[in-house]
Simulated scan of single mutants.
Amino acid sequence: MEVNLKLEKPTDEKLPDFPFLNLIGSLMYIATATRPDIMYPVSHLSQFNTCFRKEHWLAAKRVLRYLKHTKSLNLVFQKTADPCISGLSDANWGNCLDGRSYTGFCFLYSGTAISWEAKKQRTVAQSTAESEYMALSEAAKEALHLKNLADHLGIRQNTVEIETDNQAAQNWAINPIVTPKSKHIALKEHFIRDAVHNKDVQLKYCPTEDMTADVFTKSLAAPKLILFREKLGLRDCS
Rank of each mutant, 00 (worst) to 15 (best):
K54R: 13
K54H: 10
K54A: 13
H56A: 00
H56M: 01
H56G: 00
W57F: 01
W57Q: 02
W57P: 00
A60N: 01
A60G: 04
A60I: 01
A60E: 02
K61F: 01
K61R: 11
K61N: 06
R62S: 14
R62N: 12
R62G: 07
R62M: 11
V63T: 08
V63S: 05
L64N: 08
L64P: 05
R65C: 05
R65V: 04
R65M: 06
L67R: 09
L67Y: 07
L67N: 10
L67K: 09
L67H: 09
L67Q: 10
H69D: 14
H69T: 14
T70W: 03
T70Y: 01
T70H: 04
K71N: 07
K71E: 03
S72Q: 05
S72Y: 04
S72T: 07
L73I: 02
L73S: 01
L73V: 00
N74Y: 00
N74Q: 10
N74F: 02
N74C: 07
N74W: 04
N74K: 11
F77A: 03
F77Q: 05
Q78W: 03
K79G: 11
K79S: 14
K79E: 15
K79C: 12
T80K: 15
T80D: 08
T80Y: 09
T80Q: 14
A81E: 15
A81H: 13
A81P: 08
A81N: 15
A81G: 13
A81Y: 10
P83E: 10
C84W: 08
I85V: 15
S86K: 14
S86C: 13
S86V: 15
G87H: 09
G87Y: 10
G87F: 06
G87T: 09
L88M: 14
L88S: 14
L88Q: 13
L88A: 12
L88Y: 15
S89I: 11
D90K: 10
D90Q: 11
D90L: 11
